[in-house]
Design a protein around this nucleic acid. Structure first.
Length: 312
DNA sequence: ATGATAGCCTGCCTGC
DNA sequence: TGCAGGCAGGCTATCA
């Protein structure tokens, strides 16, 4: 469900309401929520107890909280992935349990709880060792350079590429790698090892802005087109962030339970049958990768079959 | 190695 | 009204 802008909205909420507080206790209320934490839920709970939440850091769609021990070290982090329907909520203890409440953290200041709610249970939590990274940490948002964990990344996030809003994202390297692929451009955008944070909504929106068909072979993209696509991704994600994210229903909300309103600004995603904002041609929906792709058949012309010859 | 599928879950909406 | 089927913002494992 949530893509980069939505996860960033949640990160900011956690930064505002949870960072700096000491965890008293954590409860895991569903076996699937800690399925990625191999040592099991009891171990995860033990590692959370009495730790201070040092920060809220994001790369792509992954969010993590370095947990600081009594010596001021953060040997590991609580890694959160929202999956399709996960939510982090900050609520008073008196708030009734949500139907799909999966985890609850309480704090020694007796303030609001942190809760993880997840209808579809594709999301998950794990306690991961923080690994030193050679190329210098997640890239700025949420991490101060002085913080001892600023050049670390959780083991489970090490395979995730930087995202387009990361100041250290390398455009030239991305262009080289994407053009070396032999696949369609939307598949490449959704590959979190190539560029992270892009999901089905913002892939379709960026492709619409860049006037590229989703099946355009990556090998035929010119460098300037990759740059246009990156610019489109940054524009649409920044605009979505400013709008508080995209909410089609109550499944995506910020930590205070509020929806975002970027759905009103979508030009392609979910717009099947409605006129393209540029040329009035009805937006088309097609099935692709077991999901939907929305595009303008006039602005985003389908590549000719066999048009996969790499551009020079 | 890269590329492309199936599967994991629950709930809601549509059409018969 | 009931029920089957399709669909949903993601990732990982496992094939080719």
């Amino acid at each position: 469900m949530p893509e980069l802008p939505e996860v960033e909205v949640v990160r900011r909420g956690v930064a505002d309401h949870v960072v700096g507080r000491r965890i008293r206790q954590v409860e895991f209320l569903h076996p699937r929520v800690t399925r990625r934490h191999v040592p099991g839920p009891d171990d995860a709970a033990r590692r959370c107890r009495d730790r201070v939440v040092g920060d809220a850091v994001r790369r792509g769609k992954y969010l993590w909280l370095p947990l600081v021990d009594a010596e001021g070290h953060a040997p590991d982090a609580l890694v959160v992935h929202l999956g399709m329907s996960g939510q982090l909520l900050v609520e008073g203890a008196e708030a009734p349990d949500e139907k799909h409440l999966r985890a609850r953290w309480t704090f020694d200041d007796d303030g609001a709880e942190l809760r993880f709610v997840d209808q579809r249970t594709f999301g998950g939590l794990s306690l991961e060792p923080l690994l030193d990274v050679a190329d210098g940490g997640p890239g700025g948002r949420g991490t101060t350079d002085e913080a001892p964990w600023s050049r670390t990344i959780p083991a489970a996030v090490a395979h995730i590429a930087r995202d387009p809003l990361d100041p250290a994202f390398d455009d030239a390297d991305f262009a080289r790698r994407v053009r070396a692929r032999s696949t369609g451009v939307k598949r490449a955008l959704l590959d979190q090892g190539l560029v992270s944070g892009v999901g089905n909504i913002y892939a379709d929106e960026a492709l619409w802005r860049a006037r590229l068909h989703y099946e355009r072979p990556t090998g035929s993209l010119r460098r300037a087109q990759v740059d246009t696509l990156l610019a489109a991704l940054r524009e649409v994600m920044t605009a979505a962030l400013d709008a508080g994210g995209t909410s089609f229903d109550a499944l995506y909300v910020n930590v205070n339970g509020a929806s975002g309103y970027f759905d009103r600004s979508l030009h392609a995603y979910g717009q099947a049958g409605r006129p393209c904002a540029r040329c009035s041609t009805p937006i088309r929906r097609e099935s692709f990768m077991n999901r939907s792709s929305f595009f303008c058949p006039r602005c985003q012309t389908r590549p000719r079959v066999g048009a996969s010859t790499p551009a020079r």
